[in-house]
Design a binder for these strands. Structure first.
Lengths: 338, 338
DNA sequence: CTGAAAGCGCTAACAT
DNA sequence: ATGTTAGCGCTTTCAG
């Protein structure tokens, strides 16, 4: 790699001082127009660009923010990253994306890494394993802004961007009832996650709305991977009195359920209605097309970035706020019993 | 954001010089064991970590590599990014991911950005719009290693990781013939891309293998987005003598075709066999499950990173090599005519 | 064994 | 209007 041209190089070539060059490139009024032009021309010719490391060292800032996602290949996360990068890019920030792979240990590692890198803030979605939240203390201590999205914790201390989980799953439950389902089941995520708890709460509220009893057998827990979701669906389908409707904590889980249902020759939605939760890009391509809760992912990402950059740019840690974005139930054929 | 502790801070606290601290932390043999221990203990207590900006400035390296993808939400790319990050992480490099959004202008912008950031190398997949390749000259001039993957150019000058495109689409064509198809169509990508050209070449070779004539009407071009793919499928389905088999340049295109076919009540694979090309994670979830060419995406990413880091770490621009990874035809129901 | 000094590239206060 | 200097955090000669 060749050495990039520096102010010093330009200064030497033009027989002026480094500070003159520095000022000229910023159109400082003190510099005489001709000198200014000569310097700018040469800088342009030599393709000068300021060294961000030197600037960062001087200004004690890296113009970089870190992102921690449970995984990067799920459409939900990559789409949120898209929103984050868009917003950050507009403000001249770089984004370092790291993945916890749903592991608590890796999550801690990501934080340490990003802090060592001197990011000016972190946007995170906690891993499904994370039950202890003390690893975020260091951010508080060092006054590094942190914004959570989707899966959150310590919301009194950190800002967050979430969806109306309770309302959304209540809506799903009601939708099931309105389309003729009576035994509505829910495959929840890991019990420690707020999204799991809130979606369960909405589920129960929905049952109440419909005057349906809560049946213990119809609420099962699953980790957020295919094998776990498959075995969760076994639990439901093997019941003596199986459900006539299932909704899962997210689309990935529901895709697995769908596969299992088809394998058994059960018809969707005739025998069992099925609804997902994040409206993955592919929800409309599966067969039958999946009813799901549409998340404004890009917007969630850009909002989280806005929240973060507001703090990073002003070098403050603001009072925590929580932005709740609205979702929308997209009704497709998987729940069209009637 | 609080100031991170520096060597200077530690030195002051212990009444020693900065250089002593620096040496102690590296277990330099010159430093007396007790002093060494005292320093290391304090450093640990104060959570000292070296400032990467200062190090980078000194060593003229950022330990950062840049990635340019056409988009980040497509599973193919996010999975490759996964492989890149894994490999880079192991070697202590950070990864900055940027997206061209399939735009030539944005691609140029990404390169400029990454170079200004002083990345030590770039891994790129060119956008569908890119027909002129001179924007990569600057990398050559500055001797910054560049590795292409999937969609490549200037392979005499830059290393690359690609798949056996010709062979794979030849295999698809033969598979169609063997399962009873006679009028085999191909939806190709933009004509400027190597992947389009090579897949067309394999298609033609496959036809020859099967003694099938090449029919101009059965080869249509599409951009790599849903609307364009939809209109391409119209062209094929509206033919007086429509095809009985279609394969597309990638899965995204084929998903769009599938939707269109279903809308018209045509049966897959009974009336038309369908085959994709990247074996997107979701290929097995659509209905019917999609036959496709499985790409070892994670491996492609890590191989590209290996190729790049070998150069970055040794600060050389090596002789270009091309790694061709093998793909595998995964036969599912969308092409199971018999 | 330890410290002082220079320099990586840059800015800004302080000369001139 | 331009130059000099100090310092951001670190390593590495060179002195002692």
């Amino acid at each position: 790699m060749k050495k990039h041209v520096s102010l010093k190089d330009l200064a030497k070539e033009l027989n002026v001082s480094i500070s003159t060059v520095s000022r000229a490139l910023k159109n400082h009024p003190d510099i005489s127009p001709e000198v200014c032009k000569r310097i700018q021309d040469l800088a342009h010719e030599r393709k000068y660009s300021p060294n961000p490391l030197a600037m960062g060292l001087l200004k004690r800032q890296t113009r970089t923010i870190g992102v921690i996602v449970p995984d990067i290949v799920t459409h939900f996360y990559s789409s949120i990253i898209n929103g984050i990068e868009d917003e950050a890019g507009k403000k001249g920030y770089y984004v370092i994306v790291t993945s916890s792979n749903e592991s608590y240990e890796k999550e801690k590692h990501c934080i340490r890494n990003l802090m060592n890198l001197r990011v000016e803030g972190i946007i995170a979605c906690i891993s499904q394993e994370t039950k202890d939240y003390s690893h975020f203390d260091t951010l508080l201590e060092d006054e590094i802004p942190l914004v959570f999205f989707d899966r959150v914790c310590r919301t009194e201390e950190f800002s967050s961007v979430v969806v109306n989980n309770v309302e959304a799953s209540r809506q799903i439950t009601n939708h099931f009832f309105q389309t003729g389902s009576k035994r509505i089941a829910h495959i929840a995520g890991p019990a420690n996650l707020n999204i799991s708890k809130e979606r369960i709460e909405g589920y129960k509220l929905g049952l109440k709305d419909c005057n349906l009893p809560f049946d213990d057998n119809l609420l099962v827990y699953s980790n957020l991977d295919l094998p776990s979701a498959t075995s969760a669906s076994h639990k439901l389908l093997d019941l003596q009195n199986p459900p006539d409707a299932i909704f899962g904590v997210n689309d990935t889980v529901v895709f697995a359920v769908m596969k299992e249902i088809k394998k058994r020759g059960i018809r969707i939605p005739h025998d069992i209605s099925l609804v997902g939760f994040t409206d993955d890009f592919h929800a409309s391509f599966v067969d039958p097309p999946l009813t799901s809760i549409e998340h404004p992912t890009f917007e969630m990402g850009s909002k989280a970035a806005q929240l973060l950059l507001l703090q990073a740019e002003n070098n403050i840690v603001a009072e925590p706020v929580q932005i709740v974005v609205d979702t929308r139930l997209i009704i497709r054929e998987s729940s069209a019993k009637r």
